[in-house]
Write a protein that binds this DNA or RNA. Sequence first.
DNA 1: GTCTATAATTTGATAGAC
DNA 2: GTCTATCAAATTATAGAC
Lengths: 185, 185
Amino acid sequence: MTDTSSMRERILSSAEKRVRAVGFHAVSFRDLANDVGVKSSSVHYHFPKKEDLGEQLVKRYSERFHARLDQIDVEEVGPIGALEAFIALYAEALVVGESVCLCAILGAEANSLPGRINAGIQAFFQANTEWLTEIHRRIPSSTMLMTPIEIVSALEGAMIVSTVMKSREAFDATAQRIMANHKEH
Amino acid sequence: MTDTSSMRERILSSAEKRVRAVGFHAVSFRDLANDVGVKSSSVHYHFPKKEDLGEQLVKRYSERFHARLDQIDVEEVGPIGALEAFIALYAEALVVGESVCLCAILGAEANSLPGRINAGIQAFFQANTEWLTEIHRRIPSSTMLMTPIEIVSALEGAMIVSTVMKSREAFDATAQRIMANHKEH
DNA sequence: GTCTATAATTTGATAGAC
DNA sequence: GTCTATCAAATTATAGAC
């Protein structure tokens, strides 16, 4: 099953795993080559420049993430259920000491990344806030709710703090707070 | 004034500025050497290994930050005023496209940093949450307040999202939300 | 598509003169 | 303390054979 996926996909999977653990600058073509059992020049065949790799990484991650959001939409769980599912997606992305959201770690490195990668990260956050805005619109009595960008910020920050503290406490507390803010009205 | 500071201090200042802009891995000894007008071997004289540099960087940043927190304590502005001053410290650390909190960017890179640096970042967050816990304790009617670790997470995350979006919107909204949550009771 | 080979550059780090 | 000189290793990237 994993063996049937193309080399390009296997490289992207390896890259995503590594980047989400240690960041873009800390991953090399040789790391990826070793992971998938080829030489680094073969990795360059699929992704000529590292910027290309980063760009495709963000693209693939975003598409996968947004496909999950679309799925939530069609499930018609209601706005509160949708928010819960959204948070669950983020929760899934965090494995303390192993991975955070790709765009959390790339976002922190943003000022040292090539422009095309940055644009992808920005689009990811933009799409997330827009999706949340639509959910937000469907929640009655919108007073006291956190805005979409606050929700995204809080979740991304909580992932980073959780990683540093080696404990999910920060993330879990943030997730609960977001839900509490939107349920008691 | 700037000229009278020691070479060691000037190197640390240069390093802090750069790391807070682009991250630890994206800064080299030669960058710093050029900034302060010496050769890279001279930078190694002051900081033998890059890990030493990172460690001292976090130490200096933390001490400076916590000195500011001590200052807030003695000013006796009350718990709400103290919280406001705390957030102002974070606000000061964010210059979109130029710098975020040192521990936000190092926190994101945490899994690829030497252990001693990680310990410093963890201590920074720990001290911040403990300071906030004491403030928290002094706020009457503690229902519905965000916990200290949630506040720190939200502010750090907002810095990163603001950097990516090239707008302070995320940070400002987060700051206002924290204050609103603690004022209306 | 993958390989060997290698270029070109950068990087962290050290030895030893001054 | 700073310099020159240098090293070893790593990194991005390319040329050309198979």
